[in-house]
Amino acid sequence: MIPYAESLLIFTSLAVILASSLNLMLGYGGMFSAAHAVFYGIGAYTASLLALHVNSSILLCVPAAMIAGGVAGALLAVPALRVKEEYFVVASLGFQVIASTVFNQWVAVTGGIGGLTGIPPASFMSIQVDSYGGYLVLALLCAAGVLIALKLLVRSEFGRALRALRDDEAALQALGRDPVRLRVATVVIAAMLAAIAGAIYAYFTSFVNPESFSLDESILIMVMVIIGGTGTLTGPVLGAVFITTFPALLSFVQIPSTILGPTQRVVYGAVITLLMIYEPEGLLGFLRRISRVASFSALRRWQPSTSSS
């Protein structure tokens, strides 16, 4: 039981990193990207190749994955950010298609759709991470590090400028800030953070192939951010936890095999749709509402006792 919960928590931590890093672009910068899985994949492939051919040290592979992710982010951002809003979504979609093709077709480097197998376990100094518990600590530390970095970032002048860019670009320009440079920096930072998740994924699964970094994955990351609540630090975390653990919970429900898959997907889709219809602010808004209702009931229970005393 415990290793299963650990593996689920590892994937949840990776999802938290991915959703939170995308939220920097989407929630704070107002840039909808359909290519976040590309940076995840570049991080995974970079770490895998280094681990396979050079050294599996975290100190080498994770920074290298971040640099490669950042370069890929710049490749998307520099040409694409001359366009805005829906045009940027389409440009990022094109970037995702190109990257997926490269992952699939550059067989000599990526192994094509067959992927890379036998990726050695992560190592730190002379310690080898070869247990689920070890990977969980690593994934949680990375997720915590990313969340702290994002918290500091969004509270800094950079974060304030980013929100201003989202809300009123003309005002930001009037203050002498360059919106394109700000957007490029945001995409590069988000890509570098997403690449960390890729590196941990590669170490943990010891197998990477393009199926894990497809457009579907990019959409799923976007769903995590939107369903959790954009523009907050807590929202994407909630979204990532929900999207990763809810299907796992559903898999414990006894359903005949003939309808198991479709039933799980329909329930999963219906819950997401209903949540968006009745709680457009996402899970964070839903939890705030519950919290308000609970506080109100507690207050009502408390009032008679105070009046009688």
Binding site: P3, T205, F207
Partner: peptide, 11 residues
């Protein structure tokens, strides 16, 4: 897909 399969196998 690999990731759902890994979660399933771990379960």
């Amino acid at each position: 897909l690999p990731q759902p399969a890994i979660i399933a196998m771990n379960k």
